[in-house]
């Protein structure tokens, strides 16, 4: 295995997880660099998980000033308002995260995510994007793809008690154990653009309703020029109209996108902490898999809805086999 051995301190601290994924994976983790943008509840949970796991560095990007609303599912920032005046969310979170694991470098990158170029993203092994518009997500996904090295790309979106994770690992080779043998696997991911513009006819049978509902709402936000999540129940009639249009052009049954679900997603602006914990946990696990190159990665969407309790994987938007 490449690289030096784990130190005694690392072996003691990471004892229990090395027993899960092995010392090689732990070494790779400790050399990895993660970029995280949009520090909402599920992303905060994710940050905690990867800092505990012992990645090399985490770079936080979120210039928003802290308000009470931003802290509804945040356990990193002390409740004292005097402690957070004038500081950005990223700065405040970074202080606490450093504390979780002194062996991980946590830093802040100021600036608007969409302004960063390919060279900037090249520094990272994994990029996690949340709380931004669909067009920003797509453009960062493209930049990650242009980098010479493979950058694992993830987006996260939690609305009400629902959550979505998207994964793009590009051309991905990994190993897994099967009946005591280690076998090599190879999978090819579509981009975010490809995955969300897949014709609805081509979608898997009984595809998660959340996939469809979130596409409608994303489209609505884009057309209306709204920021992500800047919606309310009052938008429902307009969204219903859009749903009809989309379903008509895609020849899809409107009943697959129920009103009740749309309404929940539109009005649920407060985060639901248990769902943040679940989405942040699954995402943390996926990033650890992608970095260590061990274990079946998720391809390429994960959905969780607390009302039915199902955590579902969907594989959407694959290019037609040649």
């Amino acid at each position: 295995m490449d690289g030096e051995e784990l130190t005694e301190q690392e072996t003691a601290l990471y004892d229990r997880q090395i027993r899960v994924w092995g010392a090689d994976a732990q070494r790779r983790l400790s050399k990895s660099h993660i970029l995280v943008s949009g520090l909402k509840g599920s992303v905060i949970e994710f940050c905690k998980n990867i800092v505990l796991a012992g990645v090399g560095s985490v770079t936080l990007n979120d210039d928003r000033l802290v308000t009470e609303g931003l802290l509804s599912a945040n356990f990193l920032v002390p409740s004292d308002p005097n402690a957070y005046t004038g500081k950005s969310l990223a700065e405040l979170c970074s202080d606490s995260l450093k504390d979780f694991n002194p062996m991980v470098r946590v830093s802040v990158q100021r600036g608007e995510l969409s302004n960063f170029d390919v060279d900037f993203f090249h520094k990272f092994d994994a990029v996690v994007i949340s709380s931004c518009s669909l067009s920003t997500k797509k453009s960062i996904n493209e930049k990650c793809r242009k980098s010479l090295k493979r950058i694992a790309f993830y987006t996260v979106d939690c609305r009400d008690s629902c959550g979505e994770i998207f994964v793009d690992l590009q051309d991905y080779i990994y190993t897994k154990k099967k009946e005591d043998e280690t076998i090599e696997c190879h999978i090819v991911y579509p981009t975010l653009e490809e995955a969300i513009s897949a014709p609805w006819k081509s979608l898997p049978r009984k595809v998660s309703k959340l996939y469809l509902a979130l596409r409608v709402i994303e489209k609505f936000e884009e057309l209306e020029g709204r920021s992500r999540g800047e919606t309310s129940a009052a938008d429902l009639p307009e969204v219903q109209k859009l749903r009809k249009e989309l379903c008509d052009t895609q020849s899809h049954a409107e009943s697959q996108i129920p009103d009740a679900l749309l309404e929940r997603l539109l009005k649920g602006r407060t985060e639901f902490p248990p769902v943040c914990a679940i989405i942040g946990g699954i995402l943390g696990q996926e990033v650890i898999k992608a970095i260590s190159g061990k274990g079946d990665p998720l391809k390429n969407f994960f959905f969780f809805d607390a009302t039915d309790g199902k955590g579902i994987i969907e594989d959407i938007g694959n290019p037609k086999p040649k």
Partner: peptide, 19 residues
């Protein structure tokens, strides 16, 4: 008899308990 343990699974399980 050390039980294997990672943070992520515990976080997910805790979320499910609260639900």
């Amino acid at each position: 008899n050390i039980v294997h343990a990672v943070a992520t699974t515990n976080a997910v399980i805790a979320g499910l308990i609260v639900i």
